[in-house]
Nucleic acid binder design. Structure first.
Length: 745
DNA sequence: GGTCTGCAGCTTTTT
DNA sequence: GCTGCAGACC
C-alpha cells in the first residue's frame, strides 16, 4: 500500500487526478519524479493493468530510474508498464509493424555520422560545393524540417523556391530515398514513421490506443512538434494524459523542442486541469534564491516562484581563476575539501557548457588522484574500431545498409579501392540492388580481373558470416567477425600504445555484447544494435558510486548532487558566443544556467577563468552575465585557502602547458565583492630558479592587457622586467610578484 | 590501390 | 591543438 501522506497537497492532487488531461508545472526539485512514480503506482494499486500505462521520459537514464522507483512502490507489476524514451518506444512499435510502411523489420537506425556520409555523397553526386553548402547545415536543415513534420516538398514551399533552397531540397529528397533504399531510419524518423504507421493503419492505432490507456510524459517542455502529435494521436478520445514539465527548464530548442507545447497545452486540451508544484525540496535557500534571480531575467515564462522551507545554507562560492588550469586545480582541490567534510564523491558534480572543457578538469583530477567519471563527450561507440565492427554487424543484419557496407568493404584493407566500389555502386544502382548484393554478384558487375578476385573473397567472407549470424549468438557472431576478417591483425602487428588501446576497446565491445546477451537472453544481433543506437553511452555506465561526475549542463538535467561546480562562467563560454545576438538563444542559455544552479542541493561553486585557451588561442573573457544576475549577498567572500599552484604536468599526463605561470599577488577585482582570487593571493612560493622571461616575450597583465618585455634586470626571484603594453603604457615589475602571464608566441 | 603529408576547419548542447 | 581530407607519391 503506497503512502500518499508523504506528498504535499498539490503533489497528492496530481497523483489522484487520474482521469482527463493533467498539466503539472513542476519547478526544479519540486518532486516531479516522485509525483510521476507515485501516480503510476497509484494507478496500478487502483486496478489499472500495468500494461495499460505508458510513461515517456527524455533519457534512458531517467527511464531506468523511474522504473526502479515504481518497482519499489508497486513491485513486479512495474515491469509490465512501458517506461521508456520516445525513441525506444517508437523503435519498439516499429519493429512490430514497420513492414506496413514498406520497410523491413531489421531496419537500421542511422546516427549523425551515417547521416553525414549519406548527405556528403549526395552533395558530391549533385556537384554541390561543400563551401557553399556545408553538409552540416544541410543536415540541420533536414532535421529541422523533420522536427516540424515537413516533407521535402513542404519544406521547399515554406522556405521559398530559390536556387539555394532548391539544392537543399534535392539533397533532402535524395536523403529520404537513400534511407528508404538502405532500409534505415534516422532518429527523427523513429518518431515520424511511427506517426505515419499509426495514422495510416487504423487497426494498429486502435491497438495502441487501447493498450495505452494512461499516458504520462516527463520533461514535456522538451518535446517537439512530432512528438507532441504522437502523444496526441495515442491519447485519442480518452484524454488520460498527464504531462509534467517546467518551461524554465526547456533547453532543447535547438533540437526542435517547442516550448509552445507546454505553454499552449491548456488550449489543446480544453478540459485540462493544471497543478503547479512550487515547493522545492532539493536545494538550500541561497541556491534557490540565486536560481530564481537568474531566471527572473527571462521574459515570456509562466509565472512561478520556487520556495523552500530549508534554511539558507552555505553561500555560493565564486572563484576567480587565472586561467583554465587554475580553475581546474581549484575544482579538484575543493572537491577534495568537500569530501574531507563528509560529502561522498558520488554526490559531487562538475558541470560545464561544452564537452571540450572537460579535458583540463580531468587532468587536474588525475593529478589530484581523484576518481571521476566523464559522461558524454567521445562516446565508446564512436571509436573507429568499434564502429567498424558494428558496421559488420549492421550490414549483415540489414544487407540493404550501403552506408555500413561501404564502411567495411575495404576494412581491413583487402584491395577493394575507391574505383572498384564505384563500379559496384553503379552496377547496384542500375539493377536496383544493394551494394552488398552487387558484391555478391561480382562476376557480372563489370570489374577488372584483379578487383574481381578481391571482391570474390569479400563475398565469400560475407556469406560465411551470414551463416554464423543465423546460427550463433551475438557474441559468437562478433568473434567470427574478428576471426574471419583478420581485423585484429592490423593492431597486433605493431605494438604501441594506440594499438593497445584499440584492442582494449574491442575487448570492451565483446564485453558489452556478452553482457547484453546475459541480460537479454532472447535478444539477437538486431536487438543489440538497437540498443547501441538508442541506449548509447552514459546509460550503460554503472551507478556513479564512488566517483565524481563530470558532464555537460545538458546531460545534468534531471539529476541532483549535494555539491555542484559550474565551471567556465564566462561570456562566450556560458552564455556561448553564438547566443550573444539572439534573444531567444540567450534565454535558452539562461534556462540552462537555471538548470545548472538547481542541480545543487547543499553547496554551489561557480568558477570562471580570466584567460582561457580556446581553439589554440588564449582569450580573456568577461565574467558571465549570469553571475552578475545573482545578488552579491548570496555570494561568498573569503579565500580559497590552500595554494592552488599546479606543479608542471607529469610527462605521462599529456597536459599541455602553453605558458609559464607565476603566482599572482594583489589580484585585481572584477567589481564583484568577495570574489576569491587566483592562487590564494600569492601565497604560493615562486618556484623556478631560472629566468622565466626574456626580452621580446609577449605577456599578459591583469590590468594592462597584452604587452612586450623590453628589458630585464636581475635573475630568479629578484628579476624585474620593463614591459611596454600595447596600450602604450610602460611599467617595471618584479616578475615573480606581478600578475603577469607569459604568452605563447 | 595504398600511404604519407600538409592544411583547413573546428566545438554547443543529445535521442 | 586535433581531425579529416585532398593531393602527391610509391
Amino acid at each position: 500500500m503506497i503512502d500518499l501522506n508523504s506528498l504535499n497537497p498539490p503533489q497528492k492532487e496530481a497523483v489522484l487526478h487520474t482521469e482527463g488531461p493533467l498539466l503539472v508545472l513542476a519547478g526544479a526539485g519540486s518532486g516531479k519524479t516522485r509525483v510521476l512514480t507515485y501516480r503510476i503506482a497509484h494507478l496500478i494499486e487502483n486496478g489499472v493493468m500495468p500494461w495499460h500505462i505508458l510513461a515517456i521520459t527524455f533519457t534512458n537514464k531517467a527511464a531506468r530510474e523511474m522504473l526502479e522507483r515504481v518497482r519499489k512502490l508497486a513491485g513486479e507489476a512495474a515491469e509490465d508498464c512501458w517506461i521508456s524514451t520516445f525513441h525506444s518506444c517508437c523503435a519498439r512499435i516499429l519493429r512490430r509493424d514497420i513492414e506496413k510502411l514498406g520497410y523491413k523489420r531489421q531496419f537500421a537506425i542511422y546516427d549523425e555520422d551515417d547521416k553525414m556520409s549519406v548527405i556528403k555523397s549526395l552533395c558530391k553526386e549533385k556537384a554541390l560545393s561543400e563551401k557553399e553548402f556545408p553538409p552540416k547545415l544541410i543536415r540541420s536543415a533536414i532535421s529541422d524540417a523533420k522536427n516540424k513534420m515537413l516533407s521535402p516538398e513542404d519544406w521547399l514551399r515554406e522556405e521559398g523556391n530559390s536556387a539555394r533552397t532548391r539544392a537543399i531540397f534535392e539533397v533532402y529528397q535524395g536523403y529520404e530515398h537513400t534511407l528508404k533504399a538502405n532500409n534505415a531510419l534516422d532518429f527523427d524518423d523513429l518518431i515520424l514513421k511511427t506517426l505515419e504507421l499509426l495514422a495510416e493503419n487504423p487497426p494498429v492505432l486502435e491497438y495502441y490506443r487501447d493498450k495505452f490507456r494512461y499516458i504520462l510524459v516527463d520533461e514535456y517542455q522538451d518535446t517537439n512538434l512530432a512528438q507532441y502529435e504522437l502523444v496526441r494521436l495515442l491519447t485519442g478520445e480518452r484524454h488520460n494524459l498527464c504531462v509534467v514539465g517546467d518551461d524554465d527548464q526547456s533547453i532543447y530548442g535547438w533540437r526542435g523542442a517547442d516550448i509552445r507545447n507546454i505553454l499552449e497545452f491548456e488550449k489543446d486540451f480544453p478540459d485540462t486541469h493544471t497543478i503547479k508544484l512550487e515547493q522545492n525540496y532539493r536545494s538550500t535557500g541561497n541556491i534557490l534564491d540565486a536560481a530564481n534571480q537568474v531566471i527572473a531575467h527571462n521574459e515570456g515564462r509562466k509565472e512561478k516562484e520556487l520556495w523552500t522551507e530549508a534554511e539558507a545554507g552555505e553561500p555560493i562560492t565564486l572563484y576567480d581563476a587565472l586561467d583554465e588550469r587554475d580553475e581546474a586545480a581549484y575544482i579538484a582541490n575543493m572537491a577534495r575539501r568537500r569530501q574531507e567534510m563528509g560529502t561522498r564523491p558520488g554526490e559531487i558534480a562538475v558541470l560545464y557548457r561544452t564537452n571540450g572543457q572537460s579535458r583540463v578538469i580531468e587532468e587536474a583530477f588525475v593529478r589530484a588522484g581523484e576518481t571521476y567519471r566523464v559522461y558524454g563527450g567521445l562516446k565508446f561507440y564512436d571509436r573507429k574500431e568499434v564502429k567498424d565492427l558494428i558496421a559488420y554487424m549492421r550490414c549483415l543484419v540489414n544487407p540493404d545498409d550501403d552506408v555500413s557496407t561501404r564502411r567495411i568493404i575495404n576494412e581491413p584493407k583487402r584491395s577493394i579501392g575507391e574505383s572498384t566500389v564505384e563500379r559496384l555502386a553503379n552496377y547496384a544502382q542500375a539493377n536496383e540492388m544493394s551494394l552488398l548484393s552487387a558484391a555478391l554478384d561480382y562476376e557480372n558487375a563489370g570489374l577488372t580481373a584483379r578487383a574481381r578476385t578481391s571482391v570474390a573473397m569479400f563475398a565469400e567472407l560475407m556469406i560465411d558470416l551470414t551463416e554464423v549470424l543465423y546460427s550463433g549468438t551475438p557474441s559468437e557472431f562478433l568473434q567470427a567477425v574478428l576471426d574471419r576478417t583478420g581485423y585484429l591483425k592490423q593492431f597486433t602487428e605493431v605494438k604501441n600504445e594506440e594499438n593497445e588501446a584499440r584492442l582494449e576497446n574491442i575487448s570492451e565491445l565483446q564485453g558489452a555484447v556478452t553482457e547484453y546477451e546475459q541480460q537479454n537472453p532472447q535478444g539477437g544481433v538486431t536487438d543489440f544494435l538497437e540498443n547501441v543506437a538508442l541506449v548509447t553511452d552514459l546509460d550503460n555506465m554503472n551507478e556513479t558510486g564512488g566517483a565524481i561526475t563530470l558532464m555537460t549542463l545538458h546531460s545534468a538535467k534531471g539529476l541532483e548532487f549535494d555539491c555542484v561546480f559550474l565551471a567556465g562562467m564566462e561570456e562566450t563560454i556560458f552564455p556561448i558566443s553564438r547566443a550573444m545576438f539572439d534573444d531567444n538563444q540567450m534565454e535558452e542559455e539562461r534556462r540552462l544556467c537555471y538548470v545548472g544552479i538547481t542541480r545543487a542541493k547543499k553547496k554551489l561553486f561557480m568558477t570562471h577563468a580570466r584567460t582561457r585557451m580556446l581553439y589554440n588561442n588564449r582569450q580573456a573573457n568577461q565574467i558571465s552575465r549570469f553571475v552578475s544576475e545573482i545578488p552579491t549577498r548570496l555570494i561568498q567572500g573569503g579565500r580559497a585557502g590552500g595554494a592552488m599552484r599546479i606543479p608542471p604536468a607529469a610527462p605521462g599526463l599529456k597536459a599541455r602547458q602553453s605558458y609559464d605561470r607565476r603566482p599572482a599577488a594583489n589580484a585585481g577585482s572584477l567589481g564583484i565583492p568577495g570574489v576569491q582570487k587566483g592562487f590564494g593571493g600569492g601565497s604560493a612560493p615562486a618556484q623556478p630558479t631560472q629566468n622565466l622571461f626574456s626580452v621580446g616575450d609577449r605577456v599578459m597583465h591583469r590590468m594592462f592587457g597584452p604587452g612586450t618585455v623590453m628589458e630585464l634586470a636581475g635573475t630568479g626571484n629578484a628579476q624585474r622586467a620593463r614591459i611596454k603594453f600595447d596600450s602604450g603604457t610602460e611599467r617595471i615589475f618584479a616578475v615573480n610578484a606581478a600578475p603577469i602571464l607569459k604568452m605563447r608566441k
